[in-house]
Amino acid sequence: MDSQLTQYIPILILLLVAIGAAAGMLIASVALGRWANRGRLQNRAKNQNINTPYECGMIAVGEGNTRLSVKFYLVAMLFILFDIEVVFMYPWAVVYRDMLKTNGPVILGSMVSFLGILFIGYIYALKKKAFDWKS
């Protein structure tokens, strides 16, 4: 197998172990909980109120999935924009020192111009009050 891929085999094993451990613990706890509360559970059939959504003891009002402020979605969009920038910065940061010796102006100029364009976008979002939560 390709050596690039072989180093990910431990990850796969860890993934399986983690899934197994977490799911196993959960199933065990559900079974143990049933067993430990078997006396109470028999009387439960009459009273289903314990399974209602928790709302500080009141009967729940309205739907569970209410509408939420649009600001949350705005933050998600901004996140995508700025996270792409980080994706570009990581490979740049890794080769920065090596390339500086041979190709200094290229590596510096490319990142400075990229950050400059990004900064204009940041100022625009700031002026449009995209980061403000009070409205």
Binding site: L14, L15, A22, V30, Y54, G64
Partner: peptide, 30 residues
């Protein structure tokens, strides 16, 4: 915690409700 009764709200999406803690454990273990 182990011997507590497992309460799931009747309106809940049972499968996703069960999977959420499992999904949280995996990335932190990795």
């Amino acid at each position: 915690m182990l011997t507590k009764e497992d309460i799931v709200p009747f309106a809940a999406d049972k499968l996703v409700h069960f999977l959420a803690p499992v999904v949280l454990i995996i990335p932190v273990a990795l």
